[in-house]
């Protein structure tokens, strides 16, 4: 079985701070990481491969600039068998529709039985690319997977949503989006890191390699149905009363008085 995991390299948004003077993002020195939900997807794919133990493989696919090579090497170091970077200036500026068009073309070109994507990326938070890839590939999707198993030629997925869980049976091929709760990613081993840089390679697929797999009018900035009209920093809410050095009893009295004033108690 060929398991393909789609990953995105993202800035670690938990490290992003706002410049209090200019109210703009400080992006310098913010580390790039594999998106957490995607990393759980990689782990789930590796565990599935180990459990099946039938020659199944794990292939990682990412769309991004050449720097995304690092993220793919990390996935290889975790134990993935192959990695592909879909990279071309023509892909730049893609919205989720255009991105999914390109990634689906790459996945189709590489071949797949099960595709796993993270539920959503922490920079865009859209959760749209996974289901859109599934539609472009013409395969069924299941979002928010907490557990994946293979039984014969069926994939059994437990998915969580709102007040319930579904245990679903999917045919192969299919696409599954992973919650970060799906699996706790393993660390890279020393040997894994050596292999990732010496024995394994990251294959790059460009526009030329993929142009027969999609409509060239549907990719990149021009092929994106949505456009960013403007972006702006969020208005910060004003600071209220602040007590840096009350005793515990004073603090309690202050809170109780306020809650009474506000008719909360």
């Amino acid at each position: 079985m060929k398991i393909v995991v789609c990953v995105k390299q993202v800035p670690d948004t938990t490290e992003v701070k706002l410049d209090p003077k200019t109210n703009t993002l400080i992006r310098d020195g913010v580390p790039s990481i594999i998106n957490p939900d995607d990393k759980a997807g990689i782990e789930a794919a590796l565990e599935l491969k180990e459990k099946l133990n039938d020659g199944s493989t794990v292939t990682i696919v990412s769309m991004g600039p050449p720097q995304a090579d690092v993220a793919l090497r990390e996935a290889l170091a975790m134990g993935a068998d192959e990695a592909y970077l879909l990279s071309d200036r023509k892909f730049g500026g893609s919205d989720t529709y255009a991105t999914s068009t390109i990634v689906a073309a790459g996945v189709k070109k590489i071949g797949f039985d099960i595709v796993i994507t993270g539920r959503q990326a922490i920079d865009g938070d859209t959760a749209q690319v996974g289901p859109q890839i599934a539609e472009h590939l013409g395969v069924p999707q299941v979002s928010y997977a907490e557990d994946i198993n293979v039984e014969g030629n069926k994939v059994i997925v437990k998915r969580k949503y709102e007040d319930r869980e579904h245990i679903l049976e999917l045919p192969i091929p299919c696409l599954i989006t992973a919650l970060s709760e799906l699996a706790t990613p393993r660390y890279m081993s020393v040997k894994g890191v050596m292999d990732a840089y010496r024995a394994k390679e990251v294959k790059v697929l460009t526009f030329e390699d993929l142009k027969d797999m999609f409509n060239p009018d549907y990719i990149g900035l021009k092929g994106s149905p949505t456009n960013v009209f403007k972006s702006f920093p969020k208005q910060a809410k004003g600071k209220g009363e602040f007590y840096p050095d009350l005793s515990a009893d004073e603090a309690v009295n202050t809170i109780v008085t306020k809650l009474e004033e506000k008719h909360i108690i």
């Binding site: 989720t96 959760a127 749209q128 859109q132 599934a134 979002s143 949503y161």
Partner: peptide, 20 residues
């Protein structure tokens, strides 16, 4: 959970934009 699973699938099928 439902809307965020359904709407992207529809957007890809219809070929239109979707903002999350």
């Amino acid at each position: 959970s439902i809307g965020r699973d359904l709407a992207p699938r529809v957007s890809a099928r219809i070929h239109t934009g979707l903002t999350a």
